[in-house]
Design a protein around this nucleic acid. Structure first.
Lengths: 341, 341
DNA sequence: ATGAAAGCGCTAACAT
DNA sequence: ATGTTAGCGCTTTCAT
């Protein structure tokens, strides 16, 4: 025998019943007598029968698998989201296939096609930084595969979505700086075609506006998401005639760069310049000074998007698409506390 | 039409040839004429034919999928390993299913069974902290599914394995401390039934021994892997009559706890006590002082274990099992440099 | 309450 | 160079 896999036919033969009866008995079909069900299940255990899911999938057209596409698997935020997805999905009997795009449009298209080919039952996406063209997502819809977005969503595509209220997160962060007495607040922004970065900038602008603080030319640094760019932008701005007294960065990483520069140049934080980041990366509470940041509740995002997928699959009729918005939380640390901790 | 999926039969009908010819043409079988191959492929593109991998899998008995089992998906070390696995596997046309055990034996057994049921072509495992019984891995072997281990391996099971030379990593770390002039070196250890922690302790002992440094009672703190335990162990040891002057911790996290205590109590690092961690977590270079640590080259571990899997699957005859040992690297930062940076 | 038969879409041994 | 045929193991309709 090749791989000695036990099938329903083996059970049927031994019990002198048909394979269809075995199949029904194993799925607790009420049309099969309790005694037969019991006999079948006992023998299945005894023979260590393992259902061939591949065959079942071929027959039913479902795969009990969901595909996830993220920019980077090893970014704390995304691996936490994935953890939440995996937890919720596996409790409902679904497996999870993880793919990453490394922020590349081409890889995103490839991954989408691969997941369609794998006949996954749903695709959960946080789109890459390079993605402008959204045709590959229409491919998913054409194949009638449930498509959901989380965090970085495609505004133009109708779908279930789980987002963070980035606007409010930014608003909270900047309001906090203003409450602490800072007035000349710079923003390190990300690419504005990505919803999360656009909304963080809008939240920043609104908070300034609501507090009657004039927006100043050169106070927004675009495409400033890396440590290196954070360092150089900070170096740059500290030479301004109209020197800023605080930074609200759309990313913890570039905030880290800014703090690196400030410390290397002997500036006091937050005395000479306060800093607030975004994402509440693990290092923010370890660095010195501790970096005030916005927590996005990443685990919850994963759980919600998986739950939304289960809803979409199990609800018979087509409901309207839902947009779940996760409330971000301001985590205050000493990098923004004028009075000290 | 239900899902309007194009099959090889649709192509066959339109071209008035048989389905098997289409199947062969699509896989570039040389028995099919070039002109037919060309016609078939063109029509496949035109009709947007997508091969049904599930059907193919059922027929061939392969699934082109590998299953990965890790203790925690969102630990930097593991998500990097997974990144390496995913990269190598996807280049070879394999998909990757990720599962996590949360260090629980029960979840590990469940995950193994689920992956066997899913008919994965291979299972790559880093075993959980709770695992003592290894029967579930024999189940994998009984099903003739290639089984590989990485980092935390099962010594008792014959298999391809990718390990870090934890002994050497620890030896390097402790030798470095000794070179810097530290002599009274404490060890924060992990559970000794896990190979990596056992070897880190052995490397520590060997380095002491080779340098004729007497081992001192109470200088090994067992099961000390969390921030809290690192803090309390450090607090404890600083009250010793024979006060240590350095810590070699098997984990960056407990090293972080120790540094927290030392700083809170006004001790100088490394003047009063040097600290070296293990894993080179991202926060080690950000904290103050920077934490000297051991880098395990996690991405490379993932690439190697995936490559080893591909070897095992593609080599016709059964070769001996290989044990690949990754060289760890000492990353020196100021927490252990007596002379300053 | 159970069985027979068909077929999901693909591959491969065996024709011709 | 191409076609025929027979499944992979399961589910499900239609019978009895």
């Amino acid at each position: 025998m090749k791989s000695s896999q036990v099938t329903i036919h083996d059970i049927a033969r031994e019990l002198k019943i048909s394979a269809s009866t075995v199949s029904r008995a194993l799925s607790d079909n009420p049309r099969i007598s309790l005694s037969t069900r019991k006999k079948v299940k006992e023998l299945a255990v005894k023979l260590n029968y393992q259902p061939n899911i591949v065959a079942s999938n071929l027959r039913t057209g479902r795969s009990k698998t969901i595909g996830v596409i993220v920019p980077h698997i090893n970014r704390n935020f995304f691996s936490n989201v994935i953890g939440g997805i995996e937890e919720t999905a596996s409790n409902a009997g679904y497996r999870t296939i993880i793919t990453q795009t490394c922020e590349k449009y081409e890889k995103e298209v490839d991954n989408v096609k691969a997941l369609i080919n794998a006949r996954v039952d749903g695709i959960l996406v946080s789109i890459s930084g390079e993605t402008h063209n959204l045709d590959h997502f229409n491919l998913v819809k054409q194949n009638k595969i449930p498509l959901l977005f989380f965090d970085r969503v495609a505004d133009e595509i109708e779908a279930n979505k789980v987002m963070v209220d980035d606007f409010k997160g930014a608003y909270k962060a900047v309001s906090h700086l203003i409450n602490e007495g800072f007035r000349k607040i710079v923003h390190f922004a990300g690419p504005p075609h990505i919803n999360v970065y656009k909304n963080r900038m809008l939240g920043y602008l609104e908070a300034l506006n609501d507090n009657k603080i004039q927006q100043i030319d050169g106070y927004i640094f675009h495409d400033c998401l890396t440590e290196d760019k954070g360092w150089r932008s900070c170096e740059n701005m500290m030479k301004y005639k109209n020197k800023p007294d605080a930074i609200f960065s759309a990313s913890d990483i570039s905030a880290l760069g800014a703090i690196g520069y400030l410390k290397a140049s002997g500036y006091d934080i937050p005395g000479d310049c306060a800093v607030v980041g975004f994402s509440n990366e693990p290092f923010t509470k370890i660095m010195e000074p501790g970096l005030t940041s916005i927590d996005q509740n990443s685990l919850e995002i994963g759980r919600e998007v998986a739950a939304l997928f289960l809803d979409e699959v199990h609800s018979a009729e087509k409901n309207d698409y839902k947009h779940i918005v996760i409330e971000p939380e301001l985590i205050i640390r000493s990098s923004s506390l004028k009075k000290g901790v």
